[in-house]
Amino acid sequence: MNHLNEEAESKPQLKLEFEIKERDFSVAGEAASKVKKTLQQLGLMPEAVRNIAIIIYEAVMNVVIHATHGQLKVIIIPEQVTVLTEDEGIGISNVELAMKEGYSTAPLEIREMGFGAGMGLPNIKQCSHKLNVKSQVGVGTVLEAIVYLSSKDRKS
């Protein structure tokens, strides 16, 4: 399941990568926090930073909760930030249904931790300009979300 944003790959960029290990419930928060600090240092405005952090948190949490393991890549170029998660897992049989607010297959013990509202994918959609989810049942899922940066998003 290889998917690369070719445009983003060919320009000068900053690339951050994180390994998402099985049942690692802390990695989402840690990755979001780390990228958030990097983007703040690059001078991005709070709203853009928050949107990107939310996308990362929700996407990585989905890999941990619903898939087995995977990878997060965050590619930063001046014009846009691309968040890419690739996982191995059960996959999503109906992506359109999964995108619906409130739809969740999260088990009880996950709900008790505060997840399973069925709002993760809708949040990602809300926070990104472009969202692409490709999934193969029994194989895995690739999620690519893009946030375009205008000059207003950059302080400097």
Binding site: F25, A28, G29, A32, S33, A53, I54, Y57, M113, M119
Partner: peptide
């Protein structure tokens, strides 16, 4: 996170680390 905005106070009965991550994000 769906209702994230600035200057929001979170009120919760969950005491795990995810609440702190969420508050930060």
């Amino acid at each position: 996170l769906a209702f994230a905005g600035s200057h929001t106070l979170l009120i919760t009965s969950l005491t795990n680390e995810h609440v702190i991550h969420t508050a930060e994000i």
